[in-house]
Design a protein around this nucleic acid. Structure first.
Length: 201
DNA sequence: CAGTGGATCGTCT
DNA sequence: GACGATCCACTGG
């Protein structure tokens, strides 16, 4: 098992990183609560030239400031007043790229996830949707700015490579969700989903 | 099933 | 003062 290091996130190609994050394992440790899940859906947000990005046109505010930092930090923001959406900042300082984590398959800490979600069972779609991802993993806007490569507080968020193999043919590429305002950029193929083939037994 | 609308609040204009 | 990188319950067919 290998915790993804800074070098993974500071690369320049955010679309490639979004693709490579499929099959990796996102882990959180808050207090005594440890949970993790396999990343099965991501979206790339390609910085100041991407109309769908919060950092489009080099817009720099208190909220988006963490995206301008080094890759490997968490960018979490509030959406629709309800949902904390979790992104991983990529690329180098002053190049505000990010990958939105849109779906996980629960791995560790199922009881904790049930508590957080208020659900009775971990049905198959429980981890689909960026709002649900944060809910299951316990990620909150207050965690925005956390370093995912060097723990800088008791709270921890990191990504592990557990050697899961994602076949290229199992990756579904499509336009991003909910970014109609982005004009032509809404059509970019920046959404990646890992759809495992059924075992042929 | 598909379609619709309410929840709810930080952020930016 | 408007609105969103969403979710879910509820409706009707």
């Amino acid at each position: 098992m290998l915790v993804l290091q800074r070098e993974f996130f500071t690369r320049d190609d955010v679309v490639q990183i979004a693709r490579e994050l499929l099959g990796k394992v996102i882990c959180t440790s808050f207090g005594s609560d440890f949970t993790s899940g396999i990343i099965i859906e991501t979206e790339a947000y390609a910085g100041i030239v991407d109309k769908a990005s919060h950092a489009y046109n080099n817009r720099r505010t208190a909220r988006t400031e963490v995206m301008y930092g080094r890759g490997g930090h968490a960018y979490v923001y509030l959406c629709y007043g309800i949902h904390s959406l979790f992104n991983i900042v990529t690329s180098v300082e002053d190049n505000p790229h990010a990958v939105l984590i849109r779906g996980i398959e629960p791995l560790m800490g199922p009881e904790i996830m049930l508590m957080r979600s208020g659900k009775q069972h971990l049905h198959s779609k429980i981890g689909i949707g960026p709002g649900n991802v944060s809910k299951l993993l316990g990620i909150h806007v207050k965690h925005s700015g956390l370093d995912m490569c060097n723990r800088d507080s008791l709270d921890g968020i990191w990504v592990e490579d557990r050697g899961l193999i994602v076949d290229e043919k199992e990756i579904v590429v499509s336009p991003r969700v909910g970014v109609d305002y982005a004009g032509q950029d809404a059509l970019l193929p920046y959404r990646f989903q890992w759809k495992k083939k059924k075992e042929t037994t």
